[in-house]
Design a protein around this nucleic acid. Structure first.
Length: 469
RNA sequence: GGCGCCAUAGCCAAGUGGUAAGGCAAAGGUCUGCAACACCUCUAUCACCAGUUCAAAUCUGGUUGGCGCCUCCA
């Protein structure tokens, strides 16, 4: 299994620190609103990485945080006149609903920043002791960036380029820094903000320290994979490395994975540009499985464009897989043979090739676009090689194969079987009778009536199939 | 100003040295009372220029056109 490592800028063989186990940390959302479809990309991508690793027999300890103390949360709390925790708890709950609908599995642990303040105070203390951080007179604690020799190794920047960046860095408190590149570990509270006591001042943590601390607490000083959106490479992840490695004296993470951005109609999504969609918005029009399928249709390191047309195409593509499984289920319900023939055995062997192709794609830095192509090839193979004459063993094996590969991608392609109401069953039977008498007007009338009730009929060679709109 | 990425059919998207996967859409056909599903057929020399090589979408240099990070941001 190869993974592209941002640190080395190349694909590397994935070798877990501990055989058979993976320690993985993914930077989670700041919970001040419903999550947007940009937030959804890393969730879906890294959930898929996790699922594939588990499929390969690895035990994945997957940690993803909720940042629940932040300026935007506080601002929203002030606007609504409630405690910050009311806002963060509300949106954590909403986020979990969206994740469930996208079939993103809950992390092994979902730590919250506000519950890890103790660990942050401890790490900041260690950094000060070791000379990597200092407290300014007003109680702000800064990280001494130039004291960490490897600073810039992830984003491949050097400090002098950064400093020469000609931008005005003089925001408030800037003058008390030893160096313009030093970043905040702890900052004093402002009036009305939530705060915690500390040796330096009553205040709250800077943005970067939380991930260093949560990763250390739940996974250990050194982990296998640290992941997130590409915008986090600098400064967030660069700063995490500086803090963790300076404090722990060990390499922080072996592999760094970053997903590319999602654009809307070829532009960066932003509220001001008016092209901003929450996952909830999309769920009103589409099953979020379609969103997931869409996200996986491109490689995670390629920028992906989002538009209404592309979602339609994704809907149709996803339906093709669902249809194939639904056909297999229909055949299985009406199966007549349960002994597998020699031809069938040979076909199953051939079908294994698609699983091999799928794995080859996923082993190559999680090439989901290629992996999904393998699923489509399997779908075509299934559609071309199954009919009412085939045995139950054969059909079941093929169905399991499609469902399994789709499941690795987190795609649910098997609709739950449900029983129809008796009156609907009777209408379908009545239509069949009408068709037999060649009374097609009556047959079509019944079909329209069922459509109004949300049932779509399809007359296949093997009989009448139905599905929900 | 510094660092970096991308450019493959109408659309989306794999392919990083051996002669272009897959999906969507469109068209024609088979099946079917019709529709739907499915199946078959059909669609590209890979932005442009030069070079390396027996061989390049794939390597090198250049041109053009997009984009990202350097600031809260997935």
């Amino acid at each position: 299994m190869k993974i592209y490592n941002t640190l080395s800028k190349r694909k590397e063989d994935f070798i877990p620190l501990e055989e058979g186990k993976v320690k993985m940390y993914v930077c989670g959302p700041t919970v001040y609103n419903l999550i947007h479809i940009g937030n959804a990309r890393p969730m879906i991508v890294f959930d898929t990485v996790r699922r594939y690793m588990e499929y390969k027999g690895l035990e994945v300890n997957f940690v993803s945080n909720f940042t629940d103390v932040d300026d935007k949360i506080i601002k929203k709390a002030v606007e609504e006149g409630v405690e910050a925790a009311v806002i963060s708890e509300r949106y954590i709950a909403e986020c979990k609903k969206d994740m469930a609908a996208m079939n993103v599995r809950p992390a092994t642990t979902h730590p919250k920043a506000t519950e890890e303040i103790c660990g942050m105070l401890e790490m900041i203390g260690t950094l000060i002791e070791k000379g990597h951080a200092y407290a300014a007179p007003d109680g702000t604690v800064y990280f001494r960036t130039r004291n960490f020799a490897e600073y810039g190794k992830l984003s491949h920047k050097n400090l002098d380029d950064l400093q020469g960046g000609n931008r005005s860095l003089l925001v408030s408190g800037e003058d008390q820094k030893e160096d313009a590149l030093d970043f905040v570990l702890w900052k004093p509270k402002k009036e009305g903000e939530p705060y915690w006591e500390s040796p330096w001042c009553n205040g709250r943590p800077g943005w970067h320290i939380e991930c260093s601390v949560m990763s250390k607490k739940y996974l250990g000083d050194k982990i296998d994979i640290h992941a997130g959106g590409e915008d986090l490479v600098f400064p967030h992840h660069e700063n995490e490395i500086a803090q963790s490695e300076a404090a722990n004296g060990k390499e922080f993470a072996k592999y760094w994975m970053h997903n590319a951005f999602l654009n809307i109609d070829n532009k960066k999504m932003s509220k001001s540009a008016g092209n901003f969609f929450t996952v909830r918005d999309i769920s009103e029009k589409y099953d979020l499985q379609v969103l997931r399928f869409f996200m996986l249709s491109a490689h995670y390191r390629s920028p992906l464009n989002f538009s209404a047309e592309l979602m339609e195409a994704a809907q149709n593509g996803y339906d093709r897989i669902v249809n194939s499984v639904s056909n297999l289920n229909y055949l299985l319900e009406n199966v007549t043979s349960d002994t597998i023939s020699e031809t069938e055995t040979a076909l199953l062997k051939e079908a294994e090739g698609f699983t091999a192709k799928f794995e080859e794609a996923m082993d190559d830095d999680f090439n989901t676009a290629d992996a999904i192509a393998a699923i489509f090839e399997l779908v075509k193979f299934v559609n071309s090689n199954t009919d009412g004459e085939k045995s139950a063993v054969f059909l079941k094996a093929l169905k399991d194969q499609i469902v399994k590969l789709s499941d690795i991608c987190g795609l649910l392609v098997e609709k739950k079987t449900e029983d129809l109401d008796v009156d609907i069953e009777e209408l379908i039977a009545a239509r069949q009778a009408a068709r037999k008498e060649k009374n097609f007007a009556r047959a079509d009338e019944i079909r329209d009536e069922l459509l109004r009730k949300g049932i779509i009929l399809e007359d296949t060679r093997e009989g009448v199939k139905w599905k929900r709109v």
